[in-house]
Design a binder for these strands. Sequence first.
RNA 1: GUAGCUGUAGCUCAGUUGGUUAGAGCGCCUGGUUGUGGCCCAGGAGGUCGCCGGUUCGAACCCGGUCAGCCACCCCA
Length: 423
Amino acid sequence: MAANEPLPGTADIWEPETLDWIELENNARDVFHRYSYSELRTPIFERTDVFVRNLGNETDVVQKEMYSFNDRGGRSLTLRPEGTAGVIRAIAFRGLEQGDEARVFYFGPMFRGERPAAGRRRQFHQIGVEAVGNDSPWMDAECIAMLTQYLDQLGISGSRVMLNTRGLPADRPKISAALVEYFTPHAPAMCEDCQRRLSTNVWRMLDCKNPACHDIALKAPNIVDLLGDESRGFFTRVCQGLKDLGVSYELAPRLVRGLDYYIHTVFEVTHPGLGAQDALAGGGRYRIELPGGKKAVEGIGFAAGMERLLMARASLGLQTQPNAEADVMVLSLGDNALLPGLQLAQQLRLDCGGLRIKADFSGRSLKAQLRGANKAGAKVALIRGDDELAQGSVLCRDMTSSEQESVALSNLAAWLRGKLPTA
RNA sequence: GUAGCUGUAGCUCAGUUGGUUAGAGCGCCUGGUUGUGGCCCAGGAGGUCGCCGGUUCGAACCCGGUCAGCCACCCCA
């Protein structure tokens, strides 16, 4: 049995669950198209350096979570751990002229070698968007509004938009210095990680979840207060745009995020139905250097975890109801009826589109086949044995009322369409 | 990588202080009409008790290891 289990952190997804996934995808297409974003599909694996150069060599994702391997030519390849790097690579490959913009969305599997937990898989799926080639705060507001509209359309209520800014790179030394100055005297009382972060990455001390650290971080200097005029002005406009669009958000002065490329706006959307990993989606504005000395590209984007969207919906009781396996069941009695049964089912699929038609080739007793039809949720069972074959008719049984009538083969499609008007 | 909890039939789970052929409900199959489902009745199939080793006269139960799942830390989607 163990030999057939999927690998840790991976899963087989069956109907009706697949219907929920389709729901996620269809709504994404619907909403994002309205904002003039177009669908982009990039490869699931890339050269390893695509991710290393984009995410930053020091990030946890690059350091210890990537599924990397050498192909037969000895190149180092990596299963994508996130979507942005591949999208940026694709946009750069196609070429983006000055002043041009690209607005795209994508969805698909991502891979990270982490220890699985609630809401965290090794193969997980994201729906993401990227708007590249713009530097406007209004784009940030629109992007976040698009995300909340998507959540609304999925019926996911109760989520919270947490918003912060990291400012421009030029603001960072001043802010870092202020944070080091604040945290240094408190360091002995903080966790090991934070003591290390004091020299490696002070910003992360702001969102440490260790209770003692958290209390100390609460009184840390506010990033927004230390921003230069340009950064502050940018952030102010993002907030203003959101207010104007009626998107409610909360300022989260200690929200930092893990990837190096973020500038200005960073945000996360959390949901109470998720457990410890409570982020439904996260994103922000970024500036990414392209290889070959080309100008850096700037953009705004986010990624939402599909499994987490599903968890949030489930916590609200929003799972899709399973379809009946079949609307119509074709039952064949005796060996002579099997081939005609195959033909009949096929013909009905052509004549009555929209109906699910399943043929029973088991050769079992009528009783057993009817039991099967009942189990499949069929509304109509079409029964044919030697008698019906001889007469050129089909015995049509209404599985709900238990009434049945003999219908000539030539009238069957019309009879079915009348009986089950979804066709 | 670290900690806790869990692992018995297809599914959800019982299994008393270690004691013979390991149980229930649901599901499945067959029969109760030579060709008629659901409800009911009768019968039946199905389990190396995650795996390996140890203790013992004897292990689903105790001990060690290992694998897997869940959840948490971490990180984030």
